[in-house]
Design a protein around this nucleic acid. Structure first.
Lengths: 173, 173
DNA sequence: GCAAATTAATGATTTATTCAAG
DNA sequence: CTTGAATAAATCATTAATTTGC
């Protein structure tokens, strides 16, 4: 793909329109580049801090949000496999996806019932071949974990209001 | 030894032991009650505001987070179907629910590109049969939508660091 | 009667499928 | 057609019920 296709290049703030509001994110060439590199480096599911950092840094190239990074990795990973077999090509039948990296690291701590020690005794290999980030905070994950995916929904309408027999609104309002 | 079901019934406030720390959320009987009622009322996928409000109100009965509400609806909805066929019980086969409320309302606004007016021109029926909440904020969903599901990850270890050929860390650190 | 072991529920994650904008 | 965005399905992991042995 061309480089200057959707890229705004320096000088112009095109891409991800600065004025437009509701549209979907349109990544810049640089952004895609970085993301792709990160992906090729092995990053599959970045943590919250990672995402925050990535989007923060990528914001230098244009407007971007955390969710964009999140979705990007989601889609890229999922499509990596689908792209090989479902290339909508009638004659493209060579799907050599021999990588079934299920990687189910369930070596998490027991956290039986004593406390929240939560020691991740994962393989203590030398995984620091390419330290992406220092990964600072990893302490209290109690209040931190409250936003979650629901934030993604911009769902305004509510499906409720179906059965009249109930009147729980009293409990709320 | 099976009379008290699982609910603490009146008199005793069990569930969500105030002492427990890390572990998964354990809903109170009241919380479950409300959630179930909401679900039975037709609520399937509450919006962010809804979730926030629900959890806020349910917090009166015990510790609860937004994600809990979110997950609860997710699971409850998904299990409603699976519960009917896969009931490994010895002889308890009386779970008849015949409601297949698929109801896929995809009439979201266009949000073409002008602004973020976001008008939900859903069926303008009398859906206020059971107003759950006034549904206050529904404005800027730009910055608001940045936490998302990634917040859920308490992932300490990073999957990155796999291929050394790259050194994008320079771009970040 | 209680406690360890087992089973069933269900809360929490991850993955796959689908929808629609560009 | 590409791809960001959203939802549903499948899966994993932990807690509560239940069972069993003492």
């Amino acid at each position: 793909m061309g480089e200057g296709e959707r890229a705004a290049e320096s000088g112009g703030f095109s891409a991800t329109r600065a004025g437009a509001k509701c549209g979907r994110w349109n990544p810049t060439a640089e952004q895609v580049k970085v993301l792709t590199d990160l992906f090729r480096s092995g990053l599959r599911t970045p943590s919250t801090d990672q995402i925050q950092m990535i989007s923060a840094h990528l914001s230098a190239f244009g407007k971007i949000e955390s969710k964009n990074v999140f979705y990007w990795f989601q889609n890229h990973k999922a499509r990596e496999r689908h792209h090989k077999k479902r290339r909508r090509g009638p004659r493209d039948e060579e799907d050599d996806d021999g990588d079934h990296q299920k990687a189910r690291s369930r070596c998490l701590a027991s956290c039986t019932k004593g406390k929240q020690d939560l020691f991740w005794q994962r393989q203590e290999r030398e995984t620091e071949t390419l330290e992406l980030f220092p990964l600072k905070s990893c302490s209290s994950d109690e209040e931190k974990v409250m936003s979650m995916r629901s934030e993604l929904w911009g769902r305004p309408f509510l499906d409720a209001a179906r059965d009249p027999p109930l009147d729980l609104r009293l409990s709320f309002i």
